[in-house]
Design a protein around this nucleic acid. Structure first.
Lengths: 215, 215
DNA sequence: TAAAATGTACTAACTAGTGAGTATGTCAAG
DNA sequence: CTTGACATACTCACTAGTTAGTACATTTTA
């Protein structure tokens, strides 16, 4: 009566799906949609290929779920920021540092977005969940810029979306183009020293931009 | 003596290779390395699949040649710039505009670089031609920054490579992430008006950065 | 006439997707 | 409280179609 029923199956749909998504995220972000192998995903999973089709219907369906899951993660991150009680310049710096660190610590997300762009964002377009992404970040920036103008800390009236793009571009590029950039210029962009310098640079560039010119 | 020998073959190895490379550039930049189909390339070519293997050995070999060809193009572009006789600020603006327009008019190149980054620049590493890319751009920027400091137009001593990255990031991102960005924020980044604004923005941001702080 | 260039037709291997059945949990009826 | 019916969760083995790559014959060029 001691040891028995070792190889008994446990139904755990939630864990199974999470498991698949976790593995698939890695596979797709490493190899792309076309390059990612369903069999490879199945093998790294504690479940089988049949289950992937059971839950996600197709390779594309799985990819889409991976993408949605990745975007859901940042959405919550953005929402958690409490910047309205900080002075404008400090609020903006905090926002920039957060973006910087998010991209730096989530290369998988960055890679998935790159991949999705190669596909002309075709899957994203089909996903209401992603397309209707709470773009609170723009409102957050708009509020900071307005306060900055009112306080006189910022002199230039900039489009919040453009400012967001300036910030995003730098933070994203550092991660997305790490390999080609590093290869050509023989520089390791993940070195802590370089990271710190870049972090300060993008913040200073944005702030000084807002403090120069009028319009 | 009129029309004869219609279906006679003409050997034109150079044109054949160029033809293949042209078509392959489009195929790979649209579908990625794994997603690109050798058969699809062969069909769009005035030659056959056999020729692709005859000249390029393998799919990867073809992809590498496509990549090298793309990089060779910018290398010449960079070299052609004559900025040393312009005042520092104007020289930098010219350089920025050139980068901006290059990325804007060469989305294929941008996409290929994105794809290569997904592959951790593995092919680039194997290509001496690309790895030893003449990085004259850095020297060009360094010279401009030095002159700017000497003239007193720039007050901040910045690393030329960092400045290059700030510029590249924005110009590249606008093109590489056009689709996801456009989808989420419902903005068409290729509109002439938006383009002009962005062009001015990145230039102003870089210049104001160099004119702020000391260090 | 030899070497380079090209066309045709094929194959071996891979890969997304499925057919058909089994195990597990739950809930209602006896 | 237990049996059995049903839905969900899961396994294993298979297939149809695709795709990179090639064998072999032929034509062009020098």
């Amino acid at each position: 009566m001691a040891a028995k029923r070792q190889n008994t199956r446990k139904n755990d749909p939630q864990r199974t799906q999470e498991d698949i998504l976790e593995v698939a995220t890695e596979e797709f972000s490493t190899n792309g949609l076309a390059g990612g192998r369903v069999d490879a995903i199945a093998e790294k999973t504690r479940t089988s290929k049949r289950m992937i089709y059971y839950y996600f219907g197709s390779k594309e369906g799985l990819y889409l779920s991976v993408l949605e899951r990745a975007y859901r993660k940042i959405r919550t991150l953005e929402a958690d920021l409490q910047l309205s009680n900080l002075p404008p310049e400090q609020a903006l710096r905090t926002l920039i540092f957060t973006t910087f660190e998010h991209d730096e610590t989530n290369p998988d997300f960055v890679r998935l977005v790159s991949i999705e762009n190669i596909h002309h964002a075709a899957h994203m377009l089909r996903s209401d969940a992603i397309r209707d992404l709470n773009v609170s970040i723009i409102e957050t920036i708009a509020a900071i810029l307005d306060r900055g103008i009112a306080d006189g800390v910022f002199t230039r009236r900039a489009d919040p979306m453009d400012v967001h793009m300036l910030i995003s571009a730098f933070c994203f590029f550092r991660v997305s183009n790490r390999y080609t950039f590093g290869t050509i210029f023989r520089r390791d962009l993940s070195e802590p020293e370089t990271m710190q310098r870049h972090k300060g640079m993008i913040a200073d560039a944005v702030i000084s931009y807002l403090q120069s010119g009028a319009a």
